[in-house]
Every structure is written in structure tokens, then in C-alpha cells.
Design a protein around this nucleic acid. Structure first.
Length: 476
RNA sequence: GUCCCCUUCGUCUAGCGGCCUAGGACAUCGGCCUCUCACGCCGAAAACACGGGUUCGAGUCCCGUAGGGGACGCCA
């Protein structure tokens, strides 16, 4: 049997980080069955039943986010709203079969009912007052909603693939609205019909839908349709343990992209957040497809930890190809230097990327660190660097400079030897010479190996930057 | 409030009755490497929420308690 999963976000304006994980799990589950089972498809459906929320940009935000993460869906993204006719038909059919009924309650009545229920400690809100009432008693001109006749007595059991069997007494379930007074379908009706029509076999979604599953299961049953398998994955919480919300900061995957995270890192992190395969931490896409299964999904909510994501990101940056990284940082590099890039920037970055990427945990950092190769003279010095260029620091530079200039071949080995020889003759530690060099050549106190930097910068640029520092013409 | 779910180091987790004096990863703290920072390597501190059972034996099974979370819309 071919497995069919689906990701069904509502257009909220961005791809929520929790939604991203849900999408990832659905995608992996389908891919796993496609490659190691008897087939798998991953569908994307936009839950735009509530037209008030719908905008084209909101839909684009979701598809862009999924594409960035590399989670391609099968077929076209489907609009749930476009199936409204079909949903209404199903509701009318239920009505004709006496499995649903018209409810003429006013919003005020409903509000009172809810209040009373709460006061009396009942969770069943709607009392079903129109269930057996003659529609002839309806108030003049009132447009009814269509409600489903839920079973009275007994219980509903969901065999959840993650949570295990979950049971609720049917008396806790009230008759839910299928069709609104204006004739549009509710989410409850729409998901069930769409999942059935699309042949969805596995509904993998957030834990917050678990209680909905009871109601939806009853709808499937009264429609005489096969129940899909349900898998409710725990939610992602903020560092404080509450459901991730705006006050926790970055919610959309686009925010993480902007902060310099790689999609590979985010996927790896999200995968590991709530799912495990023994002690494995770094898991490639292919490996994930092979290993992924619902049985290894945890049942407790997990807190989002940016530190771990960052660490993973550092790993994926180190592993990424130099050319790819250069492409990724070029825009921000150009921007931060106001478009004034040194002529040989590309060449220097190609040589220097290996040393650069080892020291960056985000693309933002990488870009900032790469400025030393792209910037033009005279360099700006940060505070600590300018302090290194006072007094004996500058003195050493002045004495070292001729030794460097005299070098026949300008390469790492020779540069290092010349500097070491100088340090020895001056009876100072290498660092006493290397740090002022770093300050003069990069404007900073932290950088890749300084002899590497000198080699990449080349003789002219290195000597030039040295002279700038010696004459003190750097910007602060 | 009602219903549902959850509970191993600070965080993510391994553990599916004896292999656990509870393992890994991130973070933290030491140390090594070293021209700085990072990487890498070595090491330390750090957890089975509590109480009852079941069993020869429980982190692992059952029941309570406590704590946390989620759902209670003509939103999705």
C-alpha cells in the first residue's frame, strides 16, 4: 500500500518552525516508504477555509519556506477552499440521511450555553437542543448551521501511532458544526473530506489536534469511510516550556534563514527534536529517510534550544563547499562594505574560505569574518586591535617589516619562519609579534592563522596594510 | 473549570525487566593543542518528579499524587 501523507498549514504569513517540523516528519515518512516500502507521496494542502486569513503572500511564505528546507511536495499545492462545493455536498448528504441536522441557535444562545457548561464543570458545550427539534420551529428567516449527530454514549478510541491508544467518552463530544450559517464548510468537515478524497493514509500533525481527532474520527465513521492512521507529534515549546509563540521571538523559518542558519542544520535539528535513532546526532538527509519512523517519535513536548541549533549549524558550515558558502555570503558582505570590495576578493575568499568556515557558526559570522579579505585600505581598527598597535607592538612591526619585505618567496612557510626568527632575535614570544601583525592586517584581534592571511593577501597588500598601521592612518 | 496528553542531567535524548555504579549530544567548567579565535582531543560536574504496588529483580509494567502542556469557536 502506498503511503500518503500531507502537510496542511493555514496561511498565517510564514512557515512556523513547528509546522516545519511537522512537514519534515510527513515528508520523511513518505520518502521512507517511497524508497524502502511500497511507495509514498507527500501532499501539500493550504487550509484556507477561513478566507479572512487568506492572502497570496501568506501562501508563498509557506511554499518558499518548504522549498528552502528542501521539502518538495508531490503534485500541486491544493487550496482547501477550492473544494467548498464538495464539502457542502457531503454535509447535505449527511443531512438527507438524518446523520446531521440544522441548528438555529444564535451566537448569544451559544455563548450562554458555553458559560453555563463551564460553570457546571462540563466540557460538552453545545447541548444539542436542535438535534430532535422540528425545524418548523425555527425563527423566521434564520440561517441554520449544519451539525453532526455525534453518537450518544460509548467511547471513541484513537489508536495513535505516537501517543498510543487514546480514549474519550462520547458524552464529552458535542455535535460539531459542519457547515456555517453562510453555507461554508468548517475546518472539521473540510479536513475529513479532503483527507479522504486525497487518499491520505497517515495524518501526522501537531499534538494540538489530538482532541480534534476524536471528532474527526466520528465523522469518518458516519460517512462510512476508512479511518486514516493518526500520529500526533508533540509540540515544540519555547525555552520557558510553553507553546511556541510570538513572545519567544523567531517563529518562522525565514527568520532562521535571515540569522544565517543553513537549511540542512535546521532540518537536522528539527528532526532530532522529538525523534531519535540511538545516539546519532548528525544525520544526513539520506540517512534520515532510511531511518525515519513514527515509532521513534517521542511523546513529550520539547523545548527549542538555539545553542544546539547553532552548534549543528557550525558543523554544516564546516562541511559545506567553499564555493557555495562564498555565494551565500556575497550579498551581505557587499552590503556591509557598502559595495567597496577589493578587486581580488573572489580569489582571496576561495583561498581563505577553508580557514574562515572553521571559525563561523552562522553565515552572518562567516560574512563578518570574511570582511578581512574583501575590505580595502586603509583598514578600520577595532578598539582592541588599535591598542595592540601602540608602543612595543608597533615597534616590533617596524622591525619585522623589512624582514618580511626581504622574503624571496611570499608563502605561509617563509612568512612564519621570518616572524619566528624575528621573535627569537628580539627575545619575545611569537604571540608578541603575531598579535600586532593580526591587528594591523585584519583590524581585529581574532582571525584565521595570521601567516595564512598574509599569504592570501599577498605581498603588496600585506606590506601596504602594515605601512598604514605604522603610519597610523587607519580609521577607528 | 472540564477533557486529553506528558514527566531520565540546565536543554535534546538513549534506555523498550537483569547488559544501568543510567549512555550520547548541546550548554557549563577544567586541561591539552596554539600566533588569536575556532576546530580537534582529554577530563569534570550534572538526571530516572514523588508515593504505593507487581516481580527474585523496575528508569523500564500498574495505580495514585504532584507538576507541566494541549484542547475546549459558525478559527484552523
Amino acid at each position: 500500500m502506498t503511503v500518503v501523507t500531507r502537510f496542511a498549514p493555514s496561511p498565517s504569513g510564514f512557515l512556523h518552525i513547528g509546522g516545519a517540523r511537522t512537514a519534515l516528519y510527513n515528508w520523511l515518512f513518505a520518502k521512507h516508504h517511497a524508497e524502502y516500502g511500497s511507495g509514498g507521496r507527500f501532499l501539500l494542502r493550504i487550509e484556507d477555509t477561513d478566507r479572512k486569513r487568506f492572502t497570496e503572500e501568506a501562501v508563498n511564505a509557506i511554499t518558499d519556506g518548504l522549498s528552502w528546507l528542501g521539502l518538495e511536495w508531490d503534485g500541486d499545492a491544493v487550496s482547501q477552499f477550492s473544494h467548498a462545493q464538495r464539502h457542502a455536498e457531503v454535509a447535505r448528504q449527511l443531512l438527507a440521511e438524518d446523520k446531521a441536522y440544522k441548528c438555529f441557535c444564535t451566537p448569544e444562545e451559544l455563548r450562554e450555553m458555553r458559560q453555563a457548561a463551564r460553570q457546571e464543570g462540563r466540557s460538552k458545550l453545545y447541548d444539542g437542543r436542535w438535534r430532535d427539534r422540528d425545524p418548523a420551529e425555527a425563527p423566521e428567516g434564520a440561517e441554520p448551521t449544519i451539525r453532526l449527530k455525534m453518537p450518544q454514549g460509548g467511547e471513541t478510541v484513537i489508536e495513535d501511532l505516537v501517543q498510543g491508544p487514546v480514549t474519550v467518552a462520547n458524552d464529552e463530544l458535542d455535535d460539531m458544526v459542519l457547515l456555517r450559517a453562510d453555507g461554508t464548510p468548517t475546518y472539521m468537515l473540510a479536513v475529513v473530506v479532503d483527507d479522504h478524497d486525497a487518499g491520505v493514509t497517515h495524518v501526522i500533525r501537531g499534538d494540538d489536534h489530538l482532541t480534534n481527532a476524536f471528532r474527526q474520527a466520528q465523522l469518518f465513521l458516519t460517512l462510512g469511510w476508512d479511518l486514516p492512521a493518526f500520529a500526533h507529534i508533540p509540540l515544540i515549546h519555547g525555552p520557558d516550556g510553553a507553546k511556541l509563540s510570538k513572545r519567544h521571538g523567531a517563529l518562522g523559518v525565514d527568520a532562521y534563514r535571515d540569522q544565517g542558519f543553513l537549511p540542512e542544520a535546521l532540518c537536522n535539528y528539527l528532526l532530532r527534536l522529538g525523534w531519535s535513532h540511538g545516539d546519532n546526532e548528525i544525520i544526513s538527509r539520506d540517512q534520515a529517510i532510511e531511518w525515519f519512523g513514527l515509532d521513534a517519535v517521542g511523546r513529550a513536548a520539547a523545548r527549542f534550544d538555539t545553542d544546539k541549533l547553532t552548534s549543528l549549524n557550525g558543523h554544516y558550515i564546516r562541511q559545506a563547499g567553499d564555493a557555495k558558502l562564498i555565494d551565500l555570503i556575497m550579498p551581505s558582505l557587499t552590503e556591509s562594505l557598502n559595495g567597496n570590495l577589493a578587486d581580488d576578493t573572489a580569489g582571496r575568499l576561495e583561498k581563505g574560505m577553508a580557514g574562515l568556515k572553521e571559525r563561523a557558526k552562522t553565515l552572518i559570522e562567516l560574512s563578518e569574518n570574511a570582511e578581512i579579505y574583501a575590505t580595502t585600505r586603509p583598514l578600520a581598527l577595532d578598539e582592541k586591535a588599535s591598542r595592540l598597535l601602540q608602543d612595543d607592538g608597533r615597534e616590533h612591526l617596524g622591525l619585522l617589516r623589512p624582514r618580511l619585505e626581504a622574503l624571496g618567496e611570499w608563502n605561509l612557510k617563509g612568512l612564519e619562519k621570518a616572524t619566528r626568527d624575528y621573535a627569537e632575535s628580539a627575545e619575545i614570544k611569537l604571540g608578541k609579534a603575531a598579535q600586532p601583525l593580526r591587528a594591523a592586517l585584519t583590524g581585529r584581534t581574532v582571525s584565521p592563522g595570521i601567516f595564512e592571511v598574509m599569504e592570501i593577501l599577498g605581498r603588496d597588500e600585506t606590506l601596504g596594510r602594515l605601512d598604514d598601521a605604522l603610519s597610523g592612518i587607519n580609521k577607528l
